[in-house]
Design a protein around this nucleic acid. Structure first.
Length: 422
RNA sequence: GGAGAGGUGGCUGAGUGGCUGAAAGCGCUCCCCUGCUAAGGGAGUUUACCCGGAAACGGGUAACGAGGGUUCGAAUCCCUCCCUCUCCGCCA
């Protein structure tokens, strides 16, 4: 969420942001400002009244101590009336505060000036490309390869759980495990701290990273215990430091965390969900950074480069898109998507998304750091996939297949295998 | 899941209705003294919000796990929930 003071001072900027992000309701800005004003005026009233009442309560205490019961009784009469008034005002404060905060949660993050203004994915900019896409006729899509060898069992996944929950069998299971290890190892080499996180989070955490309100439909719920299955490790890992004030010397914090991810993916269909393209459960290695505001855009670039480096090491051609305002999402201020080339499908597959949230998430979760002696400042948070597994697996299967049908093991993963082919 | 104990500031820990936003100790910061790998003295040291101020800062309100209640007044009494610890049960 945005700082209310920022909205007060940069009202036009916020309105532009909402429009550019493709949200229709610009009036929330005015609504939030007026709700805030009302709230502040009532807070002031109630504070003043309480101050008076506290003073009287002290008097009563003093009089009681001296045994002057009757004088005390007279003042008690007055404070009783104030008490009623305070109670009423308190109620009002609570309502106004809630109203203001609910409105505040509806205002999206403001895009960085370097973000292209645009409405749809067609307005995204190709920021970077690497490698030469293969387009051989004979290359099969990954679902045919895994079907032929029995490496991914979709049918039994459907039987055991449902569509989108496949079993990985033998070599592909081993490939995934190798990739997870490889990705974590690379991150640790780059200074990230390895974390293993809970797979379920509570409501506060889901709100902290911005999954609720608004995107709760993407998550699986465990109602009996009021948990959400994590849609990405971003949620538990960023919330790791929720409600904390970190010492300045501990910042930046860099974490790498492998988890399965669960997403309901309501409404997807067709070629998008074919094979491993879109699943309800998938594995991902996630990178999260908590940084000082002045460094956050440098940190975004290094995050992007790290993720790109993984694809380069795997020798998988990719392109990096700089997302336009309209295709970016509610919480981000700048976002890159990395898309790997799928030579069996002849299309790009998103395998990573690297974002800077500036203070948008950190403010919600009160994630701050101590600046110098006394000052406290909201940190900036970033995250990026490094990388999402199934689509990387698809790309590897398709890119490393040979005309005879065998699939070679990428050079950097050889250490995890005792052979050259899957 | 059953029984019991408990949740106070960065930490340890006092506090059972008003003089406690919080004793004391530790830690930390600054200053003074001392000139040497010791020590002593002093000051400061939670957070959020509101008002005033360019700022330094000043005034106010709230918070002692969370929420609600009793009371003129609650860390202190009552209720609900959450969490931690101990014992039993169960268990990868």
């Amino acid at each position: 969420m945005l700082d209310i003071n920022f909205i007060r001072e940069h009202t036009q900027k916020v309105k532009d942001a909402i429009r550019n992000k493709g949200e229709k309701n610009i009036s929330v800005v005015e609504q939030v400002l007026s709700a805030d004003e009302q709230w502040r005026s009532v807070v002031h009233k109630v504070d003043t009244l309480r101050s008076e009442s506290n003073a009287k309560a002290k008097e009563i205490g003093a009089l009681m101590g001296q045994g002057k019961k009757e004088e005390a009784q007279a003042i008690i009469q007055q404070t009783s009336e104030m008490k009623e008034e305070i109670k009423k005002l308190e109620e009002e404060v609570k309502e106004l505060r809630e109203e203001r905060d609910n409105l505040l949660l509806k205002i999206p993050n403001v895009p960085h000036p370097s973000v292209p203004v645009g409405a749809t994915e067609n307005d995204n900019q190709v920021f970077n490309t690497w490698g030469k896409e293969k387009n051989d006729e004979w290359r099969k899509p990954h679902w045919e390869i895994v079907e032929h060898y029995g490496w991914v069992d979709f049918e039994r996944g459907v039987k055991v759980t449902g569509a989108g929950f496949p079993f990985y069998v033998g070599p592909v299971a081993q490939l995934q495990r190798a990739l997870i290890n490889y990705f974590i190892n690379e991150a640790v080499k780059a200074g990230y701290i390895e974390l293993q996180a809970p797979y379920f989070v509570n409501e506060d955490s889901a709100r902290g990273t911005g999954q609720i309100p608004d995107k709760e439909d993407m998550m699986y719920e465990i109602p009996r215990d009021e948990f959400f299955a994590i849609p990405t490790a971003e949620v538990p890992v960023t919330n790791f430091h929720r409600d904390e004030i970190l010492p300045e010397k501990e910042i930046p914090k860099k974490y790498v965390c492998y988890t399965p991810c669960w997403r309901r993916e309501a409404g997807s269909y067709g070629k998008d969900v074919r094979g491993l393209n879109r699943l309800h459960q998938f594995d991902k290695v996630e990178l999260v950074k908590i940084v000082k505001p002045e460094n956050s855009y440098e940190e975004l670039e290094s995050l992007r480069k790290h993720a790109e480096g993984l694809l380069e090491a795997l020798e998988l051609p990719y392109r990096t898109l700089l997302m336009c305002t309209g295709d970016m999402g509610f919480t981000q201020s700048k976002k890159y998507d990395l898309e790997v080339w799928s030579p069996g499908q002849n299309r790009w597959l998103e395998v990573s998304s690297c974002s800077n949230f500036e203070s948008f998430q950190a403010r919600r979760m009160q994630l701050r750091y101590r600046k110098g002696e006394k000052d406290i400042e909201i940190a900036h948070t970033l995250n990026g996939s490094g990388l999402a597994l199934p689509r990387v697996v698809s790309a590897i299967l398709e890119a490393y297949q040979e005309e005879n049908g065998k699939v070679r093991i990428p050079e950097v993963l050889k250490g995890f295998f005792d052979r050259d082919y899957l």
